[in-house]
Each structure stands twice: as C-alpha cells, then as structure tokens.
Design a protein around this nucleic acid. Structure first.
Lengths: 338, 338
DNA sequence: CTGAAAGCGCTTACAG
DNA sequence: CTGAAAGCGCTTACAG
C-alpha cells in the first residue's frame, strides 16, 4: 500500500485539524484567516502536493476562469501565411497575460458561418470570455457577441460607434514611421503598397504615411498608391505594375513582410539595386524579414505585449466592466533594404 | 421581466414533467430511456438553448474531457520558424480530432525546466492528458510524464524501449522518396543536407535516402553527407561549403524547406541553374515552398491527419489503455526545383 | 478568527 | 423504463 495521497480539502482539513472552510479560505488567501494558520495549511498543501480541484471550484464559483481564443478550422486552407505566424506569436503573449491571473487558455475552432458558438461556450461554462483575431466574417461574429452580451476583446481597430474592448497596433504611427524614414534618406517617389483598402488597419497606415509627407511639405502622388492582398503573389504583381508604369519610384512601403519580400525580388529581377535604386520597407517583422536578401527593414509591433494586453484587459472587463481600447506602439526595425 | 431561461437540468425536468435523472440520461443518450422520451427532452433542450454545465458534469464524472497541448513560453525567442508553422498546422488537426470526441483543447505553456506541470494539470483536473511536440528538453519531460504515469502522446519517434503513444511522419519513406525521385531523373551526385545528426527523424531520413541508393545499386559518397540545423542560416552555410568542396554535386536533399530555400539561393548565386545544373528537394511543404524561386519540390506530410491521430489515439488511450505508435505516410510534392 | 451546513449542477447506484 | 437520493469537491453566508 502506498501512502494515501491527500486528494481533497477535507483530507487536508483532517491533517491540519481544522475545518474544510478554513482550508478553503487559507488556500484562497482570505483575510479572515490568521497568518500562522494560513502558513501551516499552505505548508501542508505543499508537502502533500495538494492541488485544488478546478471543476469543483468552478462549479461553486460559477466561473470557468478560462478564456477561449477563437480561430477557424483549416478545412480548405492549403498553407499558412502572415496572419498565422502572427497569431502564433500573439498566443504566447496571451497565455502569459492569462497565467498572471490564473486563467486558462482554451482553443475554440469555430465554423466561420456559425453564430451559436458563443452561447455554447458560455452556457456550458467552458469559457468566461473570448479573444478574436482578424477572422473571416469578423463583423458578423462581433455582432453575434454583442447581441448576446458575451464578454470579448478583439485584436484590431473597433468601429467608432461600437463599445467593446480592443487592442490594436498603432497603424497610423507605423505608416508614419516608415514614410519618415524614407523621406529622411532622401526618397521622394514613394509608393504605398497597401493591403485591402477596406481594412481599417490599412487605412490608418495610409493616413500615417500621408501625414509624414504633409509634415515634410510634400504631396502624395495618388498614382503611387495601390492596394492588394497581404500575400506574396499580390506583392509580386503590384510591384511589377508599379515599377513598369512608374519607373521613377525610389521607395516602396509595403503593408506586410510578404509583400515587401516579393517587391524585393521583383525589383531585383527588373534590375534595381536595393536599397540604392529602390528602398523597401515591410510590416510585421516576421522571422522571414531577417532572412530576405537584403534583410528587410520593417515596421515592428510588440506582439507579446499585444497578447498580454488582450488577456489582461479582457479579464479586467470581466471583473470590473471597464471597456478598454488600447493601441500599442510601432517601431522601425532598420536592416538593409531601406 | 424577460422569460426565465432554462439553466439547469432541473428546469428542463420541470418543463418536461420528468425527473432530473431522466433528463440527464436522455441528454447523454442512455439506453435506459425510451426513444420518444429522449426525443421530447432533446427537442425541449434545443428549443430553450439548453447547454449542460461542464463544471458540474466534470466534477461528477471526475474527468475534465480536456487535453492540454504542451508548448513553451517565448521569453527569449526572437521569431518563429519551421517548428512553429508546423505546430500551428497540427493544432488545427488536433482540434478536429478532439472535437469529434467532445474534448476541449487547452494550451499549456510550461517552463522547459519545470517538471511539476503534469501534476498541476492532472491533480486540478484541468486536463486528462497531454500532447507533446518536439520541444526543448523533450526527453526530460517524457521522463517526468512516464514516472507519474500521466497519459500523453508525442509527435515523433519514441525510443525503442519506451511504451507510450506516438504519431510520427514516415521519415524513412520521405528520405527514400526524395532520393528515388532524384535518381530517377538521372542525378548521381546527391548531397544529403541534414538537420541535427542526433535527431531520430534525421537519422531515419538518411536511412531512407541511403536505401534508395542501395536499391539502385549505387553507393553513397560520405563526403556529400552533412548535418546542421533546420534553419536558413545553416542551410546557407552548409550549401556553400558543399558546393565549393564538391562542385560535381548535381542534387541536394535538404531536411527542411528553410534549408532548401537557402540552398536554392546560394546555388544560384554561385551560378548554378535550378534544376538543370542542380536539383533541390526540401522537407515539410510549408507555404513558403510554393513561393520560392523556383517553386520548391518537397516532401509533404499530411499534417492535419497527424493532428487528428494525435488527438484520437490519446483519447483512445485514456479510454482503453491501448498504446498506439503510428507513422503517417510521406508524399513528394513535385514543383520546379527537382 | 473558525466551523457546520447549504448549495453549485451534474451523474448514477439503487430501488421500484 | 423512471425517480429519489447520495455524492462529486469546492465556496461562502450565517452563526458563533
């Protein structure tokens, strides 16, 4: 017979010669319990590797102390791109933020066309709130969440008339930083190689880009402003068109590292030397940005911090109802391409 | 006053005019309940959007119906690479596999030097089992898991003397496929650009590579076999050395797409035309393999399937104690580089 | 500061 | 086939 392990607070109470109530209070650090008693019980718990049962605690508390990270299944997806790498990195930050408040991180892969999932997670008590990244049919899901008053936070810029928590990168600042750097190095024919024009993030980056020009007393040539997807292919195609139609371009500000790296390649094929003939700046500072040829100068966001804030601000909202909308700063990671 | 919602099985029981026991049994599809009764209760549950409380159910069942995916925090990591993209893709598969059995997926970010985490998750009843990918100090964690008899499954090849569940890619088959393809196209001076020599995966790929040569009646030139890291940098450096010392090389089989893409670039810089002068094959079939120049021929593994099997086989182990070790097939994704 | 007792919402052995 | 009752392991209002 191995020594009977201490499984419940009742076992611990017996050992300590106190009641279950006292053990429970001691372990949750209640002010009702004397410091000596607490310490004695804690020592006993440590000694016997005691861990409180989460299901029982959650049932009693009526809280799951769990946050669901909402993502989509990859049924028809072929591969993984920017958004995915980004998501992975932010997940780490989220987990750090949640751990601080002893919350668990649940992965919720939901069908993009489903709107019942918030109810399913909330009513079963499997999650207390949700974190949403950019996703297919995002507005659609946000609407469902708002309607059922589900607690959630999003990565991205919330529409002006909405009231829910968000964390976003400083896209205006990022666009501005990029343009300022290029202008400072004497570039005057700078192309804006944007992501989808309808995305708020992209619009903000453009505004920052524009603002840097205005402050320098320069006006933008609208012909050098173009939009596409964040992908490699889109970057390739847009860059080619841009350089063919406007050979005078001396710099490109791309809205993603993938686009920027594509631009690098196309430009070099077309005989431009980087950065002498053409400077290129990307966005996101993914790993691939270090390995490009030449290494990519790019706008960097503190993604772990973003994750941590997503976690902490959602928990704060759960506990106090305070709605926060925060923006994290952008920095320029200067390498060789600009 | 809004209509009072149905929160518990007691509410539902009242509505249906039966006992809680009956409702509970009906919802869990117990054979004890008549089909008509079941259907009536289910209809009522649907109508009122009733969802069973997970904490209560788990407390009663003494199961969390939750699997923890074990990963490490990214404190000092700068960026994300192969392993990460791979992990993200497999996570999707795992979630699919778990969903089928109504298990939840929890992210467990644990300190690589900690060995207490399995106890923490198990004793609190937050997880019933663990999924481990390649990780820092993997053997160390496996040892801890085995010692405390924690249920788990790993991605990778288990050491021969161990008895626990695993899912792995067919690395032997992958190496063989690559070599066969190169030999078939007439290559005779094929370099093996390996990952770390001590990794079982790498050893298996080499064995497959070798086996294809032997079957073709050819012997390997040991000078063309080299090991490094899976990274871009390592690929660059090894390829350069290889091509400088052995200009006769007419093909390279790289152990990762990152290495292969680096090889592509270096070889082209050194004046080789791909695939005419030099054929290159990678491993993993990541997104970046499609976008390389030229597009990369690479060994592809069915990652979503791998994830699904990790989930299903772990659950099977939990429920039946059956230990499975499965290997998923490798395929060659032929593009332009070989 | 501490304890006895009720309650959180399920599941299931037992009795019918 | 159905129900009353005990039990899962916590938390906390209430009483002292």
């Amino acid at each position: 017979m191995t020594e009977k392990t201490v499984q419940t607070i009742a076992d611990l109470a017996r050992l300590a010669g106190v009641s279950k109530s006292t053990v429970s209070r001691a372990l949750s650090d209640s002010p009702l319990i004397g410091e000596e008693t607490k310490e004695r019980i804690r020592a006993l718990a440590r000694e016997h590797d005691f861990q409180i049962n989460a299901s029982a605690s959650r049932l009693s508390l009526k809280e799951s102390r769990t946050i669901a990270f909402v993502s989509h299944p990859y049924y028809q997806k072929k591969g993984f791109g920017v958004a995915d790498l980004f998501m992975l990195e932010i997940l780490g930050g989220i987990s750090t933020g949640l751990a601080k408040s002893h919350y668990d991180l649940l992965m919720a892969y939901v069908d993009p066309s489903d709107t019942e999932w918030p109810a399913r997670y909330l009513k079963t008590g499997r999650a207390d709130g949700f974190i949403l990244m950019t996703s297919t049919r995002k507005q659609h899901h946000i609407k469902a969440l708002v309607e059922m008053k589900a607690p959630f936070i999003i990565w991205g810029t919330p529409p002006a008339n909405q009231c829910f928590c968000s964390v976003t990168g400083d896209n205006f600042g990022g666009g501005k930083l990029a343009a300022e750097h290029l202008l400072r190095s004497g570039r005057r024919k700078i192309a804006f190689l944007g992501g989808p024009a309808e995305e708020l993030e992209v619009q903000k980056r453009f505004e920052g880009f524009q603002s840097a020009h205005l402050e320098a007393g320069l006006t933008l040539d609208p012909a050098l402003v173009t939009y596409g997807w964040f992908s490699n292919e889109s970057g390739t195609e847009r860059t080619r068109t841009l350089l063919e139609q406007h050979p005078e371009i001396d710099a490109i500000f791309a809205n993603s590292d993938f686009m920027a790296i594509a631009a690098l390649r196309v430009a070099q094929e077309m005989g431009r030397r980087i950065p002498d003939d053409l400077a290129v700046i990307g966005y996101d500072n993914l790993t691939i940005a270090e390995d490009s040829d030449p290494p990519l100068t790019t706008v960097s966001q503190n993604i772990p911090l973003a994750g941590k804030l997503l976690a902490q601000n959602l928990i704060q909202y759960l506990q106090t109802g305070v709605v926060t909308n925060v923006s994290i700063p952008a920095e320029l990671e200067i390498r060789k391409s600009a």
